[in-house]
Simulated scan of single mutants.
Amino acid sequence: MTVYTQDKKPVKLYFITFVLSHSRYKYVEWLDRPFTTKDTIRCHEKAFEFFGGIPEEIVYDQDHLITVSENAGDILLTGQFQAYKQERGFRIYLCRKADPQTKGKIENVVQYVKKNFAKNRVFPNLESWNEKCVAWLNRTGNYNIHNTTKKRPVEVHAVEKQHLRKTPKMGKIPLY
């Protein structure tokens, strides 16, 4: 996504989003370069910290940072991500290509972030942008009543959080 500085200079940004299925509680992180698998793993850790735990199952779009291939339901993950998945012990559900029903929740979050956080906002620097995004999530993105659930994600998350697994310290997988 392209955003603009105070001087109207364009800056290309990339972001990753996570959303808890029941509460629709969201987490977003931005980079000024394309994500790597290591970035994706680091962002998972930050999302788990933000959510207060790890879900049992994570749904993914087919992404080259996570998967190498998928054949008749058999998923071949990248080596780094396979090691991470084993370390953290969550299940994976991989969305089918061009299937909006399995991607709907996350695609809605992507559009919501683009239109309600990033659009018309001035980009100062990456650190400030990420801080402002988390503040926006706390103030608006996770606070406003969700169109589908008719509830505030922050309130539903308070109950959903009790069902997340604790996030133990990482053992073998280096994050940085």
Rank of each mutant, 00 (worst) to 15 (best):
L77D: 07
T67I: 11
G89M: 02
S23E: 02
Q80R: 14
V109K: 02
L94G: 00
I66N: 00
D32Q: 10
A83V: 10
F81W: 08
R33P: 03
Q80P: 07
K119T: 08
K114P: 00
T40A: 10
Y25K: 09
E45H: 06
T36M: 11
V110W: 09
N125W: 03
E57P: 06
T37V: 03
I92N: 07
R88W: 05
T67H: 01
F35H: 08
P55Q: 12
K38M: 06
F123I: 07
T102K: 11
L76E: 15
P124H: 15
Q82C: 05
Q86N: 14
Y112T: 03
Q62A: 05
E57S: 05
R91E: 15
R96F: 11
N108K: 04
K105I: 05
F81T: 00
N71T: 14
V122Q: 14
A72Y: 14
E107I: 05
D61P: 12
G73P: 01
I41W: 03
Y27L: 11
V122D: 08
G53H: 15
Q101P: 00
Y93C: 11
G53Q: 15
P55R: 13
F117W: 12
K105V: 08
A83Y: 12
E107V: 02
D39Y: 10
I54Q: 09
Q82D: 13
D39I: 01
N116Q: 12
K38A: 10
A118R: 04
P124E: 05
R121I: 13
V59Y: 14
F48V: 02
V110D: 03
R24C: 06
E70A: 13
I75L: 12
P100T: 08
I75G: 01
I75K: 13
F81Y: 03
E29K: 12
F35C: 09
E87W: 02
P124W: 12
G89Q: 06
E87D: 06
C95P: 00
E127M: 05
G52W: 06
L94H: 00
G89V: 02
Y27V: 10
H22Q: 08
Y84L: 01
I66D: 00
P34V: 14
Q82N: 04
L65V: 02
S69N: 08
D99A: 11
E49D: 04
T36L: 14
D39H: 09
S69M: 11
V19Y: 13
K114S: 08
G53C: 10
E87G: 01
S69V: 07
K103R: 14
T102V: 11
I92D: 05
T78V: 14
K97C: 09
S69F: 07
C43G: 06
F48D: 02
